[in-house]
């Protein structure tokens, strides 16, 4: 095992897949000589050349459309959109082409397309560039939507995404690129399945359902809660679509209490979808109302102080847990 950054883990996955399969190529804005705005593709242009590492004009709609076409033509494109906020321009191509063609074309052509893009706030990018859109895309049949939280998953899931025959939206988080974590040595080949969540911490008193950067915040909250005798189980969903229902329902049946922690907005999103699944599948096991921690229901403020206030915190999670876990626990 080595300790490397999330950014380096992503680059290793791309590099290894490009060596493994010459049909894999990457394109996007500023990804060639510049190495990507988050430095994920640094060095790949020098290693693989302009045929396989392509800078494109600034036009997310057509970049996405051509990537879909290239996939239909037998290649395995990895598309980097500079941020998920830019994917709004490509939504028609993602929703109406990528997600539909396998179905509309009678199951014949595969669309082995990966769209990588960072999301999230916390870096003072302002109202237009700090958003979470996994709920939007997670709504669409035909797409896979994954959000790895650790370098290990970033590498293993990106390799799986490249090999997957379906379009995969691989949503990173701007504040995760520099985090470090353990990853197997470079000569150890591994992949991580796209459809499974993971129990990050076992606990008996409450289940915290979370994903992406909030998985880290949730683990910190669980750590603090343990000092007070409350054992929280932390489930990192990792995949928004498909959702690992069994994993979360099994946990809920055990702990009987749930806190959902996500960075995005509250209404009609992933968290509320999870709450509905829990009510459908485990209502009789619930001992308390589901608590839902989210970002503030406002466009992300540009002010550093206000942005911090708009994002969900460890303290919010701890407070939510304490609101539903009986006080005798841990005493």
């Amino acid at each position: 095992m080595r300790t490397i950054t999330y950014r380096d883990a992503l680059r290793e996955a791309i590099r290894e897949e490009m060596w493994r399969d010459e049909r894999v190529f990457i394109m996007g804005e500023d990804i060639a000589g510049y190495g990507g705005t988050y430095a994920v593709t640094k060095g790949l242009f020098e290693e693989f050349g302009e045929k396989r590492v392509r800078d494109t004009p600034l036009a997310e709609e057509v970049i996405t459309g051509t990537a879909i076409g290239a996939a239909l033509g037998g290649l395995r494109p990895i598309l980097e959109l500079m941020t998920i906020n830019f994917s709004l321009l490509a939504t028609d191509l993602i929703v109406n082409s990528a997600a539909k063609f396998h179905y509309m074309f009678g199951g014949q052509p595969e669309i082995p397309l990966v769209i990588r893009m960072p999301s999230g706030g916390g870096a003072q990018r302002g109202a237009q560039h700090s958003q979470m859109f996994e709920s939007w895309y997670g709504h669409i049949p035909g797409l896979k939507v994954v959000m790895p939280a650790t370098p290990y998953d970033a590498k293993g899931m990106l390799k799986s995404a490249v090999r997957d025959p379906n379009p995969v939206l691989f949503i990173e988080h701007e504040l995760l690129y520099s985090i470090k974590g353990e990853v197997p040595d470079e000569d150890v080949e591994y992949t991580v399945p796209l459809h499974l969540g993971e129990v990050r911490r076992l606990g008996r008193d409450v289940t915290i359902l979370t994903f992406s950067r909030m998985a880290h915040i949730s683990l910190q909250a669980a750590h603090d809660l343990a000092k007070e005798g409350i054992e929280a189980e932390v489930i990192d969903l990792k995949s928004i679509r498909p959702i690992d229902i069994d994993l979360l329902i099994d946990s809920v049946k055990k702990t009987n209490r749930v806190v959902i922690a996500e960075e995005g907005w509250k209404y009609y999103g992933t968290g509320q979808g999870l709450a509905a699944l829990i009510y459908e599948n485990a209502f009789d096991y619930m001992d308390a109302p589901i608590q839902h921690i989210t970002g503030a229901d406002v466009p992300m403020p540009y002010s550093k102080a206000l942005e911090r206030a708009a994002l969900p915190t460890k303290a919010d999670i701890i407070k939510a847990v304490k609101a539903i876990v009986p006080t005798h626990v841990g005493v």
Binding site: A67, I68, G69, A70, G73, S97
Partner: peptide, 21 residues
């Protein structure tokens, strides 16, 4: 498919794949 003009980016992508090969 009935979305207007999206077949054109798709064909550019297919053309890129043809050139790639």
């Amino acid at each position: 498919q009935i979305v207007l003009a999206t077949q054109l980016p798709h064909m550019v992508g297919i053309a890129m794949a043809l050139k790639y090969d």
